[in-house]
Design a binder for these strands. Sequence first.
DNA 1: GTCTATAGCATGATAGAC
DNA 2: GTCTATCATGCTATAGAC
Lengths: 232, 232
Amino acid sequence: MIADFASFKSDLSLSKRQICRELYHQNRDLIRVRNEDIAVGNLVRIIDSTLKLAASKGFHAMSLRDLSADCRLSIGGLYAYIRNKDDLLHLIQAHGFMLTRRTLLAYTQDIACPRAKLRTAIKAHIFLSELMQPWFYFSFMETKSLPDVHKKQAIDVELEIEDILFGIIQEGIAQDVFAVEQPRLVASSCKAMMQDWYLKRHKYARQQVKATQYATFVSDVLERYLHPTPKL
Amino acid sequence: MIADFASFKSDLSLSKRQICRELYHQNRDLIRVRNEDIAVGNLVRIIDSTLKLAASKGFHAMSLRDLSADCRLSIGGLYAYIRNKDDLLHLIQAHGFMLTRRTLLAYTQDIACPRAKLRTAIKAHIFLSELMQPWFYFSFMETKSLPDVHKKQAIDVELEIEDILFGIIQEGIAQDVFAVEQPRLVASSCKAMMQDWYLKRHKYARQQVKATQYATFVSDVLERYLHPTPKL
DNA sequence: GTCTATAGCATGATAGAC
DNA sequence: GTCTATCATGCTATAGAC
């Protein structure tokens, strides 16, 4: 179960350094720098800068000169970590996919009650995208311009998330906890609302809405719709 | 009132040619071609091609060579319609803004009942984005890389739409038709679901969901949440 | 009104000094 | 391991022929 945002965060132990250390080991063959500490430190800055620049101008519009300036590495130095610009995409995508899939399944698999399971899935996704907002935003925005193989991967992960939600709703229907004619549409709209949390981060921040509050709201909206006998 | 999709479409008389004719007159100073029929015909192809190419690779990744090839105009010929690549952005944005704002207000302003008003606003937005899907998608995707003035414009239009929804919900609360603690969040989630209709067009097409059906679904979800005494 | 040809420049990528 | 210097490429934008 997820208690609150703070405990979710520490459970995942999602420090940037840790993520980049994993990334470094996954891509040893690609990265020409052997000293782990130096490499990880530079990776953190490279990825931070890429997500930042891509968020403001788009990945394609960002030049490697922009990037090298922002992450305080020379062009030459940068090329010790990637062979080309597409490697950057791959580097950033790979870890996010793994983490999303892993997290969502881990938190939902042991829950029997469909209502609790749905609430948990929503909470887990919103908390995760809160911690990794730049990654989620990047992934959504750049998917369309990915080379075919990576594009398919990205779309598959998206569908997988929706299928998890869909599955939970169907369980609920089977157990007579939920009653609804178009369960697939409910899953889609759930996805849409969760998506808005990382796409329109600024808007919600201005309204001073917190992740926990938003998760509760989304769950409430869906539950009212899914409930078979609304408060008789 | 909106009867069905077909009548909405003919009411709006949204032929590409007509939109481009308006665009041509709005930008007479910019466009160096004096023969209206030729100019309008070429504008249709230029904009069609831009929306198409930008949707698949992103606006920045699309070169003017790609564009000129796709719209069957030489590079030189293309430059009779725009001074530079940014003019293209402006050309495409301007008309969409006007149309969205105008349509939403026109269909909602004379409705007194908040419930009917909300349903109509949702329907109008979904129908409009169905007719202009490539434009809505483009606008969403490219807003971030717009020059500051145009970026502000784009964000303002977005907020305006949300404010219209918010206003309707507040009217409903004042009239005791709706009861809800966080009306702003309801407006946001409404926007998020309407947005998904044009962002994930392919997904809904695969599920064979039609615009009318989707509009009804979104309205139902929100109404169940907004209703003060759920089916007592 | 549209074409072809090309100027001028910024970019991704590499090679070799430190 | 990182830097500076440089190359080849592909881009936007223009000039002048038709």
